[in-house]
Design a protein around this nucleic acid. Structure first.
Lengths: 245, 245
DNA sequence: CCTTTTATGGTCAGCACGACTATTAGTCAT
DNA sequence: ATGACTAATAGTCGTGCTGACCATAAAAGG
């Protein structure tokens, strides 16, 4: 395999030092509130500021691989293979890092059950922070986080993404809670139920008359994520339109 | 501004030579068929193969800026400021370029009226190729192109993206044609009309009783793109579901 | 003048959806 | 126990969107 010398046909400008990182917007629901995983930076720049977890892509990694590796490191989870990880977009403004040229590929990760506050391996410290209170972050991470929230909120409409926030077996109430928390709305429970059950492949009941205990009220039937990835018809969020400008 | 030396807090691995490129999936409709802009590679690797247009991101550019610059160069258009350009995703597999580590940020561009076959400035030659006949492309460009098509097809449902394929003033028949060509389906004309006109902000009529000539049949009223970017409710494509696997 | 073509207008049944009420089945406090 | 409370589930009903049609208007071409 040829080394990193410049082959003919490539402009030499290509070898300006581009560093490539993978940053993660890890979202979960804790205590009924949307939370995001943040780390406190221990180095300049933005030392002491909170930031999205992430790190450099290694020479033998894809950005996806790097993101999953970072996710495992930061969350301390042993098995991140089943977690939902999705590329968000790439941020490449020349001045987004004051020190050098860093292009970051941002990812969105969704976790069902929040692993305890944990301490990342290399990161200074990592914490779950309510999405609303995720104050000014380092670099352009505020925008990345906002983009991630937008993307997730939109994908809830036409994909079965909401199940990624839920454990393997969940109740329809838990599923509805995901929509309400991410969208910041309140949904009608019977109507939500009717819609979900009428969407083929969204969820499938757990046959063994399984029921969930623990809370008050009538026990709820358990469901598993179905085989469908896209929802037809979509589950539209209430009245988000009306801003034609 | 500090030079490209490694500041403390950055892992030295960050400085493995990552080249960053911006590649474009430029789509348009010619003669009622979806076309994509391809260039023939004049250099190894993949010399003689067709590929998506693109090029290296310069040190002072964002990927978006580089993409728009490349778009102007490849299409020969003087004004690309009004064209729809959207980041698709980033492809970073370590072996996607046999020579060196190249991370590419892919973009999708939509053109209303196809500029003539043109000859790009630096590229060997550029041609409009029907989407169906865009044979095996260089690198992983087949997948990029397929991803672009998927993305565009999906965004037609819930955004006013279709107007980006149309000239500033267009008929509802032309707009419908965009949907039919991208989706590969046939739509009912009266129903399409009713739906589009009922969606606030999608299109607005050109007041000056303007009408289009040139073809057979009754002249059609002209419309402009409205102010809305997202469609509520969405314009769902017929029967694309049913594949729960 | 008649056919062809395309745009536009309208009808009608089915059903999806929102709003709402009712019932069931648990926990908890007294 | 017993009643209050909570949450899940079931059902109803009217509005409005949708798909499948049919009909008419306005041009071009023979």
């Amino acid at each position: 395999m040829p080394g990193p010398t410049v082959p003919e046909g490539y402009d030499k400008h290509a070898h300006e030092p581009f560093a490539v990182t993978a940053d993660l917007a890890v979202l979960t629901i804790r205590d009924g509130v949307l939370h995001v995983l943040l780390v406190e930076r221990g180095q300049e720049p933005y030392k002491g500021h909170w930031a999205l977890p992430g790190g450099f892509v290694q020479p033998d990694e894809s950005a996806e691989t790097a993101a999953r590796r970072e996710l495992a490191e930061e969350t301390g989870l042993s098995d991140v293979s089943g977690l939902h990880l999705e590329q968000l977009r790439t941020y490449s403004e020349p001045d987004r890092d004051p020190r050098m040229r860093v292009v970051t590929v941002a990812f969105t990760a969704l976790l069902p059950h929040p692993p305890e506050p944990h301490g990342g391996s290399d990161a200074a410290q990592a914490r779950w922070v309510p999405y609303d209170k995720a104050g000014p972050l380092a670099f352009d991470h505020d925008r990345i986080l906002a983009d991630a929230h937008d993307r997730v909120g939109g994908k809830l409409e036409y994909s079965s993404l909401a199940t990624a926030f839920c454990p393997p077996e969940f109740t329809l109430g838990e599923l509805q809670h995901v929509y309400e928390v991410v969208w910041g709305t309140v949904l009608d429970r019977p109507n939500f139920r009717r819609k979900v059950l009428a969407t083929p492949g969204f969820v499938e009941p757990v046959p063994g008359a399984a029921r969930l205990t623990g809370g008050r009220g009538k026990p709820a039937a358990l469901y598993r994520a179905g085989t469908a990835t896209t929802l037809h018809p979509p589950l539209l969020r209430p009245i988000p339109e009306g801003r034609p400008a």
